Amino acid sequence: MRTILQRVQHASVTVDGKITGNINHGILVLVGFEPEDINEDFEWIIKKIIQLRIFNDENNVMNLDIQQTNGEILVISQFTLHAAVKKGNRPSYIKASKPDLANEQYEEFLNLLENNFKPVQKGIFGADMKVELLNDGPVTIFIDSKNRE
């Protein structure tokens, strides 16, 4: 499981001209799944999302987590996080979960996240989404559940 976390001043996702998810201050989470990903991976990533101290305190030091700042979370599924670009110029997505499995994994991930954090906004799995954001910092963090160093 791979995620990109972006600390944002605001972010939204639009599908067919309609906003399906919208947050102010918080974290935009782009998430991609592999067939081997299980609840243990989801729970580990969720803990990181909720507990990472990436928000500034009163001294302008990144020392606060999203809960301490009353932030929000927007989650977008993105299989392209598993792009393999070693050979040629066309990315391969062979490591990404197939759509049916990825949709199940996405829903389970959202369910677990919503059990640990509110509010959670989201995109629509498999849709052509337009994502707008204002990255704050910029702070952008890559997390891979298979590389827990």
Rank of each mutant, 00 (worst) to 15 (best):
R90L: 09
G71K: 05
V120I: 11
E40S: 12
I19K: 04
V85Q: 09
I4T: 08
I54R: 08
P119Q: 05
I19Y: 03
D57E: 13
H10G: 12
N103D: 15
I143A: 02
F79I: 00
S77H: 07
E107K: 06
T80I: 02
N89M: 14
I76A: 01
I124V: 09
G26W: 04
K146T: 12
G26T: 02
L113Y: 13
K122M: 10
H25P: 12
A127K: 06
D65T: 14
T3Y: 02
T3G: 00
N135P: 07
R2W: 10
F109C: 01
G123H: 01
K87C: 10
E149G: 14
F79T: 00
L64Q: 14
G32K: 00
L133W: 14
F33W: 01
A102Y: 14
Q121C: 04
D41P: 09
L112K: 15
T140G: 06
H82Q: 04
E108V: 12
L30G: 04
K48R: 08
E58D: 12
P119I: 09
L133T: 05
R90D: 06
D128S: 13
G26P: 04
F142S: 13
T3I: 05
D41R: 09
P119A: 06
M129W: 06
Q105P: 11
L74R: 01
I45Q: 08
A84C: 10
G32T: 03
S12Y: 09
K130T: 03
P99F: 01
N70L: 11
V131N: 01
E58W: 08
I4Q: 11
L134I: 15
I23N: 01
K130D: 03
S145N: 06
N70I: 12
S77E: 04
M1Y: 09
G17Q: 00
D37S: 01
I4L: 09
E104K: 10
W44T: 07
N135K: 05
F55Y: 11
M62G: 08
L81V: 03
P99H: 01
Q9G: 07
R53W: 13
T140Q: 11
E72Q: 08
V139E: 06
P99W: 00
E104P: 05
I23K: 00
F42L: 09
K86V: 13
I76V: 02
D37I: 06
R90V: 06
I46E: 03
I143Y: 08
R148P: 03
V139R: 05
G32I: 00
D136F: 13
P138Y: 08
N22M: 10
E36F: 13
E149R: 15
Q67T: 14
K18I: 09
T20N: 08
F42Y: 14
F142N: 12
E40P: 05
I54A: 01
L113H: 13
F79Y: 00
A11Y: 12
K87V: 14
F55G: 03
T69G: 02
L28N: 05
D100L: 13
V29Y: 00
N111D: 13
E58L: 10
K98V: 14
A127R: 04
E114H: 08
S77G: 11
